[in-house]
């Protein structure tokens, strides 16, 4: 067994330094398309799928809907800017009064997370898996994955919430002790994505349980999920939409 210890030591530290320093390695995030207004370039965006009734309503098609099809950026339009980065998590509209958005200081370095797969395609789950693996290692932040919602402070929901998962999702939410925070990760969990709302799917998590933090992306890269968790405990400010350093780089 000592060979494994030796192997582990020899490998050295592989973890990202985020959030102490921004992660600059290539390929940690696919980036995000964005126009100057912060909305998706609708004329190339296949989303919502199919015809849009009436005139396109640009305000409704925002970054939360992006499914990373790259059609906008790989077409020949100059209006599309490609935004690098991964700090995409935002707090859900704060109009629900009396509900603490953040867990508070006592949870900021000790957080237990339960992931619920409410019909995700596997990519989101794979990215969530990565946050507990050496390259991102959320344990260094004091975050832990727990197998039961009984011990969880954060419910990390991925997937559009299929009809068959509505009951388990609600049950898991009710089984959590208070205070609790729900993080919806991925386009499906935010809006239903490609699959919802439909006859077998809901239109995102917020239709079923109150959502506190949202992180878009299809799938959101591990660092975006970590950013969402940091937002949930108040260690990072949420994504504002105005501030992103829009890189001038036109994609590939």
């Amino acid at each position: 067994m000592s060979k494994w210890v030796w192997k582990g030591l020899r490998t050295g530290k592989k973890s990202s330094h985020y959030p102490d320093a921004p992660e600059t390695a290539a390929g940690v995030s696919p980036g995000m398309p964005l126009t100057e207004t912060g909305a998706l370039p609708l004329e190339f965006c296949p989303f919502p799928v199919g015809e849009i009734e009436g005139s396109p309503d640009e305000s409704k098609t925002d970054i939360r809907d992006c499914v990373h099809c790259f059609r906008c950026v790989r077409s020949s339009s100059d209006r599309v800017k490609w935004q690098e980065g991964y700090e995409w998590a935002s707090e859900k509209d704060a109009d629900a009064k009396g509900h603490s958005r953040q867990l508070g200081a006592s949870f900021s370095h000790s957080l237990n997370i339960r992931m619920i797969d409410a019909g995700a395609c596997g990519a989101c789950i794979s990215e969530v898996k990565q946050i507990a693996k050496p390259c991102y290692s959320i344990h260094r932040l004091g975050f832990f994955i727990t197998p039961t919602p009984r011990h969880a402070d954060v419910l990390l929901v991925v997937g559009p919430v299929t009809d068959n998962m509505v009951f388990p999702l609600k049950k898991a939410y009710e089984a959590m002790p208070t205070p609790k925070v729900v993080v919806a990760a991925g386009t499906c969990a935010l809006t239903g994505g490609l699959f919802g709302p439909g006859f077998a799917c809901g239109a995102g998590v917020s239709d079923f349980i109150p959502v506190d933090v949202e992180v878009p992306g299809c799938p959101p890269p591990p660092l975006a999920i970590i950013h969402a968790l940091l937002v949930a405990v108040g260690r990072k400010p949420p994504f504002s939409g105005q501030k992103p350093s829009i890189s001038e780089r036109k994609a590939l």
């Binding site: 009984r150 009951f167 388990p168 999702l169 009710e174």
Partner: peptide, 11 residues
């Protein structure tokens, strides 16, 4: 608060 034992989300 008392809740039934966690059953993995079974009905």
């Amino acid at each position: 608060t008392r809740r039934p034992a966690w059953d993995g989300g079974l009905r």
